[in-house]
């Protein structure tokens, strides 16, 4: 038999050990789940994938109405591709041009058609060399805004550049307000 005070301390340290063990077990049990969750990817602001697909369909309808075949691309605010479609009959390189125009528009928050002068400047040339992936400073892409924030851009290629831009404009309503 132990004295009361000792017993108390043994019991309390036993309780403490049980609490520590329990916490450690809980931590170990939680660890594999946490390890599997390799950190949620924090994508930059952008339109949703559903919106992007809907916009591609809208642009396709506009292009069909004008009897042209386009490639269109939707990128997020970082310029990374969210969705792209090349219509049957559109030339193969139009995918890259549509994507490049959309990136241009997304990175600078302006219609790519407004950037022709900048596109001819040495500053743009060095910028284009620095940033991986092609940029095209031609008309045919417009920025996508949400609540005053730039969230991406959409670009089309395959027809006259004004027609490209018109197809984008026809699709922009999908993203909601343009402000």
């Amino acid at each position: 038999m132990c004295r009361r005070s000792q017993c108390g301390s043994v019991r309390s340290s036993g309780v403490l050990a049980a609490v520590i063990f329990g916490a450690a077990a809980a931590a170990f049990a939680a660890a594999p789940a946490a390890a599997q969750q390799r950190g949620a990817p924090a994508a930059p602001p952008g339109p949703s994938a559903d919106q992007a697909m809907a916009a591609l369909h809208a642009a396709q309808e506009a292009a069909e109405a004008l009897d042209v075949s386009l490639s269109c691309a939707v990128v997020d605010s970082r310029g990374d591709l969210i969705a792209l479609a090349r219509m049957d009959g559109a030339r193969f390189y139009t995918t890259d041009v549509a994507r490049g125009k959309a990136r241009m528009s997304a990175l600078f928050g302006q219609p790519s058609g407004d950037m022709a002068d900048f596109g001819n400047s040495p500053a743009f040339q060095s910028f284009n060399e620095t940033i991986p992936g092609p940029l095209y400073a031609f008309q045919g892409a417009l920025p996508i805004m949400r609540n005053g924030e730039l969230i991406g851009a959409m670009g089309c290629s395959g027809a006259a550049s004004q027609v490209d831009e018109d197809a984008v404009r026809a699709a922009l309503a999908v993203f909601g307000s343009s402000r």
Partner: peptide, 13 residues
């Protein structure tokens, strides 16, 4: 040559 591409929500860019 690319025909169509989509990135699902929260897929890494």
């Amino acid at each position: 040559d690319l025909i169509a591409a989509t990135r699902m929500p929260n897929a890494r860019p």
